[in-house]
Amino acid sequence: MTSRRSFVALAILLGIVSSGTPSSAQERSIVVASTTSTQDSGLFGYLLPIFKAKSGIDVKVIAQGTGQALDTARRGDADVVFVHAKPQEEKFVAEGFGVKRFDVMYNDFVLVGPKSDPAGVKGKDIATALKTIESKGAPFVSRGDRSGTHAAELALWIVAGIDIGSAKGAWYREIGQGMGAALNTASAMNAYVLADRGTWISFKNRGDLDIVVEGDRRLFNQYGVMLVNPERHPSVKKEAGQVFVDWLVSAEGQAAIASYKIEGQQLFFPNAEKKGS
């Protein structure tokens, strides 16, 4: 009996120890709360090994919607936030949760819809396109998850002069999920959906979907990065976190972002301000 019990105890101990080992070795690792678009587009998969080779720092990415990522950071569960909703980010810094926000890169949003374009919105004007979708009641998938893309979509409805809160009906489908899930849903229902170009380019399950509106300057999508304020959360790894932030906006980091391509297309365009300017 005794030997059996001690064996079980040993096995349990081993299980806990082995599963706990990685966390004890995380001296040089940081947690970055970021967006589904940066992960689903494959950017981090490309960028992080380059950064690891340079700095020796492991970056652990939690991919969430921008709103959720900022909340994760507010709770002190991340060291760095890398998202794309400038007004929310500025509020985050103003509240004292972030140290300083840096522009990193941009891409743009695209309106994706059925190739046949049943609502007839193809063109360069996003405001007109949204107005048409609303008036015809064409199916539209909204992220509905407080993400950066969701925030951008809501801002665009205002630009189009539509109060989406009262205008939404059966045609407007809020799914409360990430970019990939929204594209899967749109693909299944032949609906229109606003997507960031990076995720769209790397998305495999397009079905009958294609870009219908792009190139409108109002579809600009800016990404920003900031260190979580260590004065708010002493657990923040400020040095390693700052190294990552600095690298992203450095010439080297910017060049790495520019060099990420899928099928020859560049997904993100670095636009950090030059150091010292």
């Binding site: 966390s23 939690i62 507010r74």
Partner: peptide, 17 residues
């Protein structure tokens, strides 16, 4: 387990533990 939660000091959120 969140840093802002009662067990935050253990820092095990987002780990295999």
């Amino acid at each position: 387990l969140s840093r802002s939660g009662p067990l935050g000091e253990f820092g095990i959120l987002f780990t295999p533990t």
